[in-house]
């Protein structure tokens, strides 16, 4: 690390607060001998919606899983709200790998929606949504249920509160999963290929719900998707990934309309042909 040229942004954030809500500082993630993220630097501002695109295996999903603490970094530091996330400060001001208590405190700010929905099959729809607000946040049951019903209305499933997840279509399950994540009032929402497991005709409902969320809230969003029109509609910024590095970054109009990097052009061509 010491021999690498200093990254001025990362140094600044280590001492002074910045606008960045999420910051990756020289993050390395390896699975065995496969380096998925290679000294990755990037940051996301509060309220910003950033879409990660790129070929599969380029490390996009790993970034979300690192933020959700489902994976651990091999090197580098992740910052959330100017707090070291993957690490914690010792009394001496140094950083060491985070323990569960520290992770839990920062994880509190983050919600995630998964490709495979991952609803709890042993709970009905309403309880899927109220479970964590009641048992993790300690909310009053009546309040949690009222809020859950509001969220179900919002995602267009107000009449399915008593259904089992197995009685819902994939698109309906995913909308419940979105409601479940929102019920925790996250500051940051991670969307991991949320429409990839859905039949094509069910995709639109899920994306429309997410467009509503984007329009009506100021939740910071990190989105991994292959739905380029959706990315264009909701993101402030698009990051093109390849081999664990950011190849190109910019506003959606630029990335989709006038990409400068050959790798981005090739990727977008391939995605459009696939449609």
């Amino acid at each position: 690390m010491a021999t690498e040229p200093a990254n001025p942004e990362a140094d600044a954030s280590a001492t002074a607060p910045s606008a960045a809500c999420i910051k990756f500082d020289q993050v390395v993630k390896r699975f065995g001998s496969n380096t998925v993220l290679d000294h990755l630097d990037f940051s996301v501002d509060r309220g910003e919606r950033v879409t990660l695109i790129g070929p599969s295996g380029s490390g996009k999903t790993t970034i979300l899983r690192l933020l959700m603490t489902l994976e651990k970094v091999n090197d580098g530091v992740i910052w959330v709200d100017d707090e070291p996330f993957s690490h914690m400060r010792t009394p001496g001001g140094q950083l060491r790998p985070a323990n569960e208590k520290h992770l839990s405190a920062i994880r509190r700010k983050i919600g995630m929606v998964f490709q495979q929905f991952n609803l709890f099959p042993n709970m009905r729809v309403l309880q899927n949504i109220t479970e964590a607000p009641i048992h993790v946040l300690g909310q009053d049951r009546a309040k949690a249920e009222a809020r859950a019903r509001e969220l179900l209305e919002m995602v267009g499933l107000g009449d399915r509160a008593d259904a089992h997840p197995s009685q819902l279509s994939g698109g309906q399950q995913q909308r419940v999963a979105i409601a479940r994540a929102l019920a925790m009032d996250p500051e940051i929402l991670l969307l991991d290929e949320v429409t990839s497991a859905l039949d094509p005709e069910l995709v639109a409902d899920v994306l429309n719900v997410l467009r509503d969320v984007a329009r009506e809230t100021d939740i910071t969003m990190l989105i991994v998707t292959h739905e380029m029109q959706f990315a264009r509609d909701v993101s402030h910024r698009v990051l093109m990934f390849d081999h664990g590095r950011i190849v190109e970054s910019g506003p959606p109009d630029q990335i989709f309309g006038n990409p400068t990097e050959e790798r981005t052009q090739r990727f977008l061509r391939a995605v459009l042909e696939e449609r």
Partner: peptide, 12 residues
């Protein structure tokens, strides 16, 4: 993924 969904909801 069932465990992971629990982590994402910050359950212990």
């Amino acid at each position: 993924p069932q465990w992971e969904a629990g982590v994402a909801l910050n359950m212990t």
